[in-house]
Write a protein that binds this DNA or RNA. Sequence first.
DNA 1: CGCACCTTTGAATGAGATCAAAGATGGTGG
DNA 2: CCACCATCTTTGATCTCATTCAAAGGTGCG
Lengths: 243, 243
Amino acid sequence: MGAEGLAERFGKHARLTASEQAALDRFEEQQRSYRRGAVVIREQENARELFVVRSGWLHSSVVLGNGSRQITRFHFPGDLVGLPLLAFPDSPETVTAVTDIVLHPFGRERVGALIAEHPRLGALLLSLAVADRVAFADRIASLGRTPARTRVAALLCEIYMRMRGLGTAEGGPIPLPLTQEDIGDATGLTAVHVNRMMRVLAEDRIIERRGGMFRVLDEARLCADAGFLDRSPVETGWLPPPR
Amino acid sequence: MGAEGLAERFGKHARLTASEQAALDRFEEQQRSYRRGAVVIREQENARELFVVRSGWLHSSVVLGNGSRQITRFHFPGDLVGLPLLAFPDSPETVTAVTDIVLHPFGRERVGALIAEHPRLGALLLSLAVADRVAFADRIASLGRTPARTRVAALLCEIYMRMRGLGTAEGGPIPLPLTQEDIGDATGLTAVHVNRMMRVLAEDRIIERRGGMFRVLDEARLCADAGFLDRSPVETGWLPPPR
DNA sequence: CGCACCTTTGAATGAGATCAAAGATGGTGG
DNA sequence: CCACCATCTTTGATCTCATTCAAAGGTGCG
């Protein structure tokens, strides 16, 4: 549970041929574990490896000149981490393990080889990168134009939806291994204010919190409060045929 | 001046073969003009075409449930517009002409064909999509963790840098065909507050404004105020060989 | 069991929003 | 060419949401 590989992820969007499946599996030959809190990729440092997340949560963050931190994205099993290394030799972001994690590292040039040998997977990869970009755009809108309560709701909603995509029980408890400071750094709020907003959401019986967990009591209202938009599934009609 | 095509853009990052060059040029066979203010792609509507920007400015925006608008990205000549259509059949964003523009429309499946026939260009496209993602991340950090003055400075700085990349004179005047409301929608501020911040920047002799133009008086200080990070040029070491 | 870290709550402060209204500017049609 | 009107910019006054500062509980780990 809570573990997914590249092939499973890609397979959600297109039926893979045996050879494609094999090519993706080859990205997961290596395996490496990190402890909660470990820094996997450090901002501004030269890095050559990307990773497939096998299990656990991570986040990408940026530290501003004024010392404050902004978390830009959370990563879950099946996600690709370190994509910016395909564009920049020095990482523009820090990638940190939120929980204990297991990753599959692989070299940049393997992506090039994948695209050359399996253009359809290359196209699918582009598709996923673009979907990611849309997620970033949604977050920009959330930060730029919505009040605190909405932003916190949006983050919880995103986590809820993503965990459900990985197969969490419907109304069951969801792990929330983030400190309120983390949530603040993701939503552009202070930890204090995050605390107040979470309390309000709990008082309104939209969520319930206990320990490092939360439970969604009223999915409809959470989505409404969060301004959640269900992005239709990734489009694959334009992909070239498999080779 | 101020016009650039796909081949020029790609050529900045890798030396193109004749056949690659030709393949990219073929994306610009069609041509279509729009007036300032025209909506090129409408949010939530089904769209099948992407565009290469030949000349002029555009922006992508999202309208939130509360009626407010967030501009997520500006597009300049040589940019690809409508990439989200590679992942979603219905556009998640509205694309609007900021000035009179000329675009080259093309179908989604052409991207698939390009990747299949020219994997290296596919990889480069992925690279550019990833670079875009990093730009989004930078903006998230700006919105989430910096004060108003910094955000406005960051936007002007971005425009300044991008215009320079397209060949604007060093200390010369730069067109700014945006209303203060537009700038507010991009920076997550009100038009009124944008006005105040621009005034402060002008009073501090960092920029100068006249008509629909601005001039950067003190590039170093603008960059410092904006927390500008010069992202190193797009990395191409991992690309597969040209076919 | 004790310490470090996290959560929670209260009170004061402040950055940016909102409300309001007076100038500029520019595009359009007569 | 000019007058008019819509749109945009500018400035002031007030209000509010979120921050900051401070301090008291919790929690879990070594």
